[in-house]
Structures are given as structure tokens and as C-alpha cells.
């Protein structure tokens, strides 16, 4: 006779993932349909159907150009950026055993921002579109490597030193970024572009941007998923992970590499968008549980939805000053405070 311990297959996580996926699709449809140029849903449907079935935009067709070369890449960029940030957040929260950790905690996002800002300042963006993301991702990795080097001794990496090193490098990278911004103020347009980008922006994103972030998101997501079972134990304790056969240093460092890739890619394409990587994993954990194999896709889809809807809101109510990063910070900040107040008893040390 089978005992009663068997855990029945729960459909709740799958239903939650399906619901978020539908929500994302609705958001993407909304995002493609809104803009200063009014295009009916039927026309949008025709254009998308035509392009997906291998057709092309008729030369001189403004609707087709706006939808296919403007709104669709912008929407896809937003979704992929949100997806990447949320997946990076899942990894960081697991590695640091802290549900309040975020993708930028070890300096990767400020490193990526410095890389992108430097590329913009040097005018590399006009030379080659791929140079900004390349430098951004490269700097995210440089930040990761430097922090890892600082916190590793005798082949062992301390989680706490990683965190402290991250705080130090975040401060250093942010300071250097400020210097670059100050230097750029001699050229008004350049300074405006950099500041606007730092606040999180999806304006004028092209299919090249989609390609970049899609490749990065795919590699980062699959990589993180490969190590998700290790992450499940790492988030309990490194000692226990070692006890259950996990090669702790290797697994943790490779997870950090995938997280840096996802963060660097997102920052490279959309600039500074905060709180998505913190909120999305946190919200989905209560619906799908703490198994990172389910949490990664679930949080990724929610992160994608958050950025897509934030971008819609920016376009609907924004008067030019509002940016996605500003909006996510305005909404995410209070949510973060709510989490701190709700869980503060957990972190009281007597």
C-alpha cells in the first residue's frame, strides 16, 4: 500500500504561469496598439499576420513601418528586459539566501551602466549599434570578476564578502558614472541622452536590440535553469549544498555569471530599470513556491509583464519626463518598504 506522504502534483504553479503568460500577451498587445499615431487593431493584426507569414512592409506604408519597426521591437525589448531582470533576481535571491536581494547587489548593474554610459559618451553608439551593449555586458563581467577576486581566498568565496565587495564597487562605479555625466554636460544632447538612458528608456529600440537581448536572455535563462536544482539547496545553506553533493563554488559562481549576463544585457538595452528583479521573484514565490525550476520562468514572465505595462503607462500618461525606471522605482520603492515592514521581525538580532 502506498503511504499518504506522496505529494500530489500541484497544478497551481502551472496555472499561475499560464495566467501570467496571458497577462503578458495582453500587455504586449496593448503596447503595440498605443502610440501617438492611431492605428486600428484590425490594421495591426493584418500587419503582424503579414510579417509573421514572411511578407514585407509596403514601401511608404507608415502604419506598417510604425508597427513593425517601432512598436513591436520596443515591446519585445521591454518584455525581454523584464524577463532578464527577474531571472537575474531569482538567482541573486537564491545565491544570497535573501528574498530581498536584487540583480545589482554585487555591482553588476552599476558596472554595466558605467560601460554603456562610457560608450555613449565616446560616441560609439553612432559607430556601431552593438558597441553599447558589448561594453555594457563586458563591464558587468568585469564588475563580477573584480568582486569575485576580492572575496575569494584559498579557493573559497565568502557570500558576505561578496555582498560587501558589491556595495563598495557599486559606489565606485556609480561615482565614475557621475564623472562621465558631468563631462558630458558640455554637449547638451549627449548629456540628455545619457541621463534619459540611465532612467530606463525603450524609445527607438530596433530589431537589432531585440536580437541582442533575446540571445542574452536565452543563454542566461537556460544556464540558470541548468543550475536551478543546485540553487534550490544553495538557498538553504552552502554547507548543506556541499553535504548533498553540490560543487558549491562552481555552481554559485556559474550562477553569478549567468546573472551578470542577464543584468548586463538588460541594462545595455534599456538602461536603469530598478526593482523588477526584486519584486517579480518575490511575488511569484508565493504563487509557485520556492522551486527555482518553476520560479525562474514564472518570475521571468511577471518581470516581462511589469516592464511592458510600465512602458505602456509611461506612454499613456507620461509627459516626456516620466521614464520606465522612474516609474518602476516609484512603484517598487513602496513595495520594498512594505516587505521590510512585514518581515522586519525576521531580521531583528538580539
Amino acid at each position: 500500500m502506498k503511504s499518504k506522504g506522496r505529494s500530489a502534483m500541484s497544478w497551481r504553479p502551472l496555472l499561475a504561469i499560464a495566467a501570467i503568460a496571458l497577462c503578458l500577451l495582453a500587455g504586449m498587445a496593448l503596447s503595440v496598439s498605443i502610440g501617438s499615431w492611431s492605428i486600428s487593431l484590425t490594421q495591426i493584426g493584418d500587419i503582424l499576420g503579414q510579417m509573421i507569414s514572411g511578407g514585407s512592409i509596403t514601401p511608404g506604408d507608415p502604419n506598417g513601418t510604425i508597427i513593425w519597426y517601432g512598436r513591436v521591437p520596443r515591446t519585445l525589448c521591454g518584455a525581454l528586459v523584464g524577463f532578464s531582470l527577474a531571472c537575474a533576481g531569482v538567482v541573486m535571491q537564491g545565491v544570497f539566501k535573501n528574498p530581498m536581494a536584487s540583480p545589482g547587489i554585487i555591482g553588476t548593474s552599476s558596472g554595466a551602466a558605467l560601460g554603456a554610459v562610457t560608450a555613449l559618451y565616446l560616441g560609439l553608439a553612432s559607430t556601431n549599434l552593438y558597441l553599447v551593449p558589448l561594453l555594457s555586458v563586458a563591464m558587468a563581467f568585469v564588475a563580477l570578476m573584480v568582486v569575485l577576486a576580492v572575496s575569494t581566498t584559498g579557493g573559497l568565496t565568502s557570500r558576505y564578502t561578496l555582498l560587501l565587495g558589491g556595495i563598495a564597487f557599486n559606489a565606485i562605479f556609480t561615482a565614475i558614472t557621475s564623472v562621465v555625466i558631468v563631462l558630458s554636460t558640455e554637449q547638451y544632447d549627449m548629456a540628455r541622452k545619457i541621463v534619459s538612458w540611465l532612467m530606463g528608456d525603450l524609445t527607438n529600440r530596433s530589431w537589432e536590440h531585440v536580437t541582442i537581448i533575446a540571445i542574452i536572455a536565452l543563454i542566461g535563462f537556460i544556464g540558470a535553469l541548468l543550475y536551478a536544482r543546485d540553487l534550490n539547496i544553495l538557498m538553504i545553506s552552502e554547507e548543506q549544498a556541499r553535504n548533498f553533493g553540490v560543487r558549491v563554488n562552481w555552481s554559485r559562481n556559474i550562477l553569478l555569471v549567468f546573472s551578470a549576463l542577464l543584468t548586463g544585457g538588460a541594462v545595455a538595452v534599456a538602461g536603469g530599470i530598478g526593482f523588477v528583479g526584486l519584486i517579480a521573484p518575490h511575488m511569484m514565490r508565493s504563487l509557485v513556491g520556492s522551486d527555482n525550476r518553476l520560479l525562474l520562468p514564472a518570475a521571468g514572465l511577471l518581470g516581462a509583464s511589469l516592464v511592458v505595462y510600465a512602458d505602456c503607462l509611461v506612454r499613456l500618461v507620461g509627459s516626456g519626463g516620466l521614464r520606465i525606471g522612474v516609474l518602476t522605482a516609484l512603484l517598487g520603492g513602496p513595495f520594498f518598504l512594505y516587505l521590510i515592514i512585514r518581515d522586519r521581525k525576521k531580521y531583528v538580532f538580539f
Binding site: N243, F244, G289, S290
Partner: peptide, 22 residues
């Protein structure tokens, strides 16, 4: 171990199942 303090809400069943990792 002496104690297993966890900051995440993990079901007892899933926690025990982690022993099958290797």
C-alpha cells in the same frame, strides 16, 4: 546539522526531497 534556519517558505515535503539531489 544542528539547525536549518531558512528565510524562504519551503514545504516540508520539498525540503526532505532535497536529500535525493545526488
Amino acid at each position: 546539522p544542528q539547525e536549518s534556519r531558512v528565510d524562504f517558505s519551503i514545504r516540508v515535503f520539498d525540503f526532505i526531497a532535497m536529500g535525493r539531489h545526488s
